[in-house]
Design a protein around this nucleic acid. Structure first.
Length: 224
DNA sequence: GCGACAG
DNA sequence: ATCTTGTCGC
């Protein structure tokens, strides 16, 4: 694997290009992005789905299968998953006006989680939605769906801890690129439909897993 | 040295 | 992330 210090510098440089600004207008489409992994195939499957807003009906989707070229190292996730995700994005006829990405936005030691990284490289409005905390301090949000508390890192707010379902573990939301802190919370809550994860990400997750399963069934016997 | 640590 | 069976609750 490459020199992590060099990659850190790369992240710091890209982080300077992150812009937290309001969305120019109400989105017509909202996308979801996720990556699954198959041990038996030793492949990553990136999936991007595009939904119409506010109906959330599917518009289109794209997949990309790719071999693993980088190990999972906390805070360097994008060097493993971003290439496949960017390719999937290129396969869409039309990019979404806003993209929710499975992982952190600026809630990252160098303010460049995978959602922020993708946003800067693709120059697209993005929001990070993670199922677990990477960094930051916070107080537990109230148990009711819709409640949220700020996520702080080094004295500044970098995101939110959001209760998307009553009585269920919260998710960690942070702006990626070209959205504000307020936008990140607003659009995550707006796209939730009774599940822990917002619909765009939930569907991207479902589709990438289904892809992995079908690909494995197609191949003879190479399980484990 | 020890614990934490997205997917 | 993935590997795995049953189990609890709406």
């Amino acid at each position: 694997m490459r020199d992590l210090e060099t990659l850190k510098r790369q992240q710091e440089a890209l982080a300077r290009r992150v812009r937290l600004e309001p969305l120019p207008h109400e989105p017509e489409t909202i996308g979801g992005a996720d990556v699954s992994y198959s041990r038996s195939l030793r492949r990553l499957v990136a999936s991007v789905v595009v939904l119409r807003w506010p109906s959330l009906e599917p518009v289109e989707e794209a997949f990309v299968e790719a071999p693993v070229t980088f190990p999972y190292v906390p805070t360097f996730l994008s060097f493993r998953e971003l290439p496949a995700l960017l390719q999937a994005l290129e396969r869409l006829k039309r990019r979404p006006d806003l993209l929710l990405v499975d992982g952190q936005g600026i809630a990252h030691p160098r303010r460049l989680g995978i959602a922020a990284h993708l946003g800067v490289v693709a120059d697209l409005p993005t929001i990070g939605v993670a199922k677990h905390r990477l960094v930051g301090e916070y107080e537990e949000p109230a148990p009711e769906a819709g409640s949220a508390t700020p996520l702080y890192l080094e004295g500044e707010q970098v995101g939110w801890v959001v209760r998307t379902r009553t009585g269920v573990k919260p998710v960690f939301v942070s702006p990626g690129h070209r959205v504000t802190l307020a936008d990140s919370l607003r659009w995550v809550l707006a796209t939730c439909r009774g599940y822990r994860l917002p619909e765009p990400i939930r569907r991207a997750d479902h589709r990438s897993r289904m892809r992995v399963r079908k690909r494995r069934e197609a191949d003879p016997e190479l399980w484990r």
